[in-house]
Simulated assay, not measured.
Amino acid sequence: MAKKFAVGADIVVIDIPVGRNTKIEDVQEGRKLARDFIEIGERLGMRVECALSYGESLVGHTIGPNLEVREALAVLEGATTPNSLIQKSLSISGIALEMAGKAAYGQGFDMAADLLRSGKALEKMRQIIEIQGGDPTIKAEDIRPGEHQFVVRAPHDGYVIELNNKALVTLARLAGSPYDHGAGLDIHAKKGTRVRKGDPIFTICADREWRLERTIEVGRTLMPVLVEGMVIERVPPERWV
């Protein structure tokens, strides 16, 4: 809130992810936090609304600076996936458009979708990049993840029944994110995905080899992904392929 106030924002939409393995585990707690944000906003002269969002699954397929920027820029360029990223972005943007009086109540999502489809959202992003001293002609394909990579594969046939967000974020940080821009995770199979033994589930990316090795070592104990099979558990745990 302090940062929003410092830059002179008068309309603020705050996303509050709710669910297991998030900071806010239930809707009631999320509503209480939302009321606190709204009250603080009133004291600071800012109009604040909050969106309680589903937080038990990752938004998009990536964690880490370069990976997330590449994914977001690809959507602005016209990519139709990942749907979770597109839907959440349009929903929150729609709330902001309604609060600003640009769209009637309940019509903000459609207006945001039109701005995305028309290319106006991409045009505005390029203007922002240029103002901040970046290259406004950059494309998603120009943004590269860390060169040191390790692919975590399904230990057997089945469905991905669990992706532990906290554990995945821990691995991304161990790999160097967000300070090493190329570090992070690229998720290939989200919750509910049918996989065969050996299929890639996620890739760890790092700018430094020693960070990748450390992340692999810790990941073998965290086991952030569960693939359903007939065997509930193996002791000791199965190692990554």
Rank of each mutant, 00 (worst) to 15 (best):
W210H: 15
I161L: 04
R211Q: 12
D199C: 05
I11H: 09
L52D: 08
D135Q: 05
T221G: 00
I204D: 04
L44Q: 10
G55W: 08
D207C: 07
E147T: 13
A79Q: 05
R20D: 14
R220F: 07
D142G: 09
E162T: 11
R234K: 14
A167E: 14
A140M: 04
A183P: 07
D10E: 12
E233H: 10
I232H: 11
L185D: 07
R173M: 15
D114W: 00
L116F: 09
V195T: 08
V75A: 06
N164G: 09
A175N: 09
I131Y: 10
G60R: 08
M125P: 02
R196A: 13
R208P: 01
R208I: 11
V152Q: 06
R43V: 07
I14Y: 06
L174C: 11
G229P: 05
M46K: 08
I95P: 00
T203Q: 03
T62G: 07
N66E: 01
E147I: 14
A2W: 00
I128N: 02
R47C: 06
P17K: 03
V218A: 06
R126F: 04
E77F: 04
V69D: 01
N66Y: 03
I216W: 03
D110G: 00
S89D: 05
V151E: 10
R239K: 12
V75K: 06
G229I: 08
L76P: 05
I161F: 01
S89Y: 02
L163F: 10
M1K: 07
T62D: 07
S84C: 02
D180I: 03
R196N: 14
G106L: 08
R35K: 15
M1I: 11
A183K: 08
E217A: 10
K4F: 14
L174F: 09
E29R: 08
P236Y: 03
N21M: 11
T62N: 10
L212F: 11
A172F: 02
T221A: 12
P155D: 07
H61W: 01
L168A: 07
K4W: 10
W210T: 15
A51D: 11
P82A: 08
K4C: 15
